[in-house]
Design a protein around this nucleic acid. Structure first.
Lengths: 330, 330
DNA sequence: TTGAAAGCGCTAACAT
DNA sequence: ATGTTAGCGCTTTCAA
């Protein structure tokens, strides 16, 4: 079963030409080098017969390029990233690049390990939505000179970034409630030291300050019952508006509200920062801020391609707008 | 910016030793070759200073192994596959393997292309949930001799497979309705020529035959309104039980039922073959058959590792059981 | 203790 | 119209 893979040399030997000739023909440059049609056919036939597959490594080693982009994602099982991943891979493929996807699972150490592994593989570039703070990543990024584009979660000013203005969007969102909240509760996901979530919190805080709305913050701690108790307390304290800071925590918050028989949107209003396929099917359908996921993916790829062709220098920050989807809970 | 990457030779030159020596030291085999501690330190320091990263391709080329498994997925934006992907990557990483994930987007041609690209990269093995029929893939699989494990969707008898007995599970599922249906409607996703969906249809058909329940089949055709009309027709014809064949189409079916004001589960009962994170949060919460996603991932990896160590020959089919999650719609 | 050299499979400049 | 050859960066055997 473990026969050695067929190499250029094998074909060359069997056809009775040199491996250079075989290389030319198989790369479609036979005519360019005036290889006779007869020889070309012979070579092609033999290659097909032996199921020849070129060795990608040998080629990369020789050419110094891999036509591969590394994609580092924080949580592939979150629909947001899954969608982002899909778009990016599609677009990169259109541009002739392969994508090496890795999932860091919001694990700071794993992220570093995986980034190093990607760099080892001589990827041509890296698109990343980091879970680490940029400071932790800088030493790693210094180990390489490939272009890096941050998607969704920013790096620093010197690095490319495509995403949304989380603070501004969150701030605007507060005024989307159909009734000005008497008391707002903001629920954050468990892993909340990430830049995006912090910005969203900040935006909400500012909006509430401006409009003098009392606001409190709850951090999801992975356990539905604890969350339920926190929410109960807020409800008892007169909270009438809830803002969930991503789609995962939105589900959990809704479950809590249901448990305490909150009547949405009559007595209590709810908005999710981050949309989900299921929201429109729920009862009542969930009002949410939709991030331009696909757009983020497309622009990240564009940016990467620009950087690869060295037409652009790093440091561009592209902020895309979100869209509020009014459904039945706001 | 595009300075050449530091190579072994660079370090060797600067330290004043041969690149062999450097290679030994950097691979932690310095003592084994009796390299003096002083030289070793010198080399290590220089490597760190220059941010040396070994060239993975050169190494792979030399060693003929890549420690990389290709993972071919049909639709990464479907929660089922996203979860599978996450598990598989985690487990492979534990075993010292990297994962090269590609998403075929249920596109038959793209699948073939991507599989070829994986093979070109000399991956050590491939885990795949194919969208193509096995016949279409056989020629491609013949181009290589690496172990292949089919996950979720089977290949053929000669190939390894880890998944679920879709036919049997679907058949059993029919008797999970709280009331025996007067008329059952089975809704399939758009891409329904896949083995798993066909088996589920078959299972439902058999169950209905045995219990003499009239059954009809609807194929989702991507347009909610058309689906709505089909479902309306069935409702008018007295359909009182609906079985959705994956989580995506479940949402759409529920939306339809809501549109026509079907009272669930009083007048109409609903079950989804395939669970979703959101189901438990819906109103009423959706009864569903949960596939052992993580288990499928874990076993696929186990199988792959076995095959890689050549302890096992191919052809093992592992069927895992599903679990019916009774919630509020069945 | 360390170095020299071969070779993994491929490409491309240079010969014939 | 085709062949020869020199590497790409690394590992490893053999020699010194």
């Amino acid at each position: 079963m473990k026969e050695k893979r067929v190499s250029l040399q094998d074909i060359a030997d069997l056809v009775g030409v040199s491996k250079a000739t075989v290389s030319f023909v198989l790369n479609g440059r036979g005519d360019e080098f005036n290889i006779s049609p007869k020889t070309q056919q012979l070579i092609k036939d033999k290659a097909k017969e032996l199921l020849y597959v070129p060795n990608f490594f040998a080629r990369s080693l020789r050419q110094g390029t891999t036509k591969t982009i590394g994609l580092v994602l924080a949580d592939i099982s979150n629909t947001f990233y899954a969608e982002l991943c899909k778009t990016i891979q599609e677009k990169l493929h259109d541009k002739g690049y392969n994508t090496f996807i890795v999932n860091t699972n919001e694990d700071l150490d794993l992220e570093k390990t995986l980034m190093r592994e990607l760099i080892q593989r001589s990827i041509d570039g890296m698109i990343i939505s980091p879970c680490n703070k940029i400071d932790a990543l800088i030493p790693i990024l210094h180990e390489t000179h490939i272009p890096v584009v941050f998607a969704d979660r920013p790096g620093d000013d010197q690095a490319d970034f495509v995403g949304v203005d989380n603070e501004k969007e969150a701030q605007k969102l507060i005024s989307s409630f159909s009734v000005t909240p008497k008391k707002l509760v903001v629920i954050s996901p468990k892993t909340d030291q990430v830049e995006t979530i912090e910005k969203r919190q900040e935006g909400a805080r500012k909006a509430c300050q401006l409009e003098t709305i009392p606001v409190s913050f709850i951090h999801d701690i992975d356990d539905q019952d604890t969350l339920d108790q926190s929410i109960k307390k807020e409800l008892d304290a007169g909270a009438d508006a809830f803002l969930a800071l991503n789609n995962r925590v939105a589900f959990k918050t809704l479950a809590s509200l249901k448990r305490w028989n909150a009547v949405i949107p009559k007595n209590v209003r709810f908005i999710s920062f981050d949309d989900n396929e299921a929201f429109s099917y729920m009862n009542p359908p969930v009002s949410a801020l939709r991030q331009p996921v696909q757009h983020i993916g497309i622009e990240s790829v564009e940016r990467m391609i620009d950087r690869l062709s060295e037409k652009k220098t790093p440091g561009k920050h592209l902020l895309l707008s979100c869209e509020f989807i009014p459904r039945g809970t706001h």
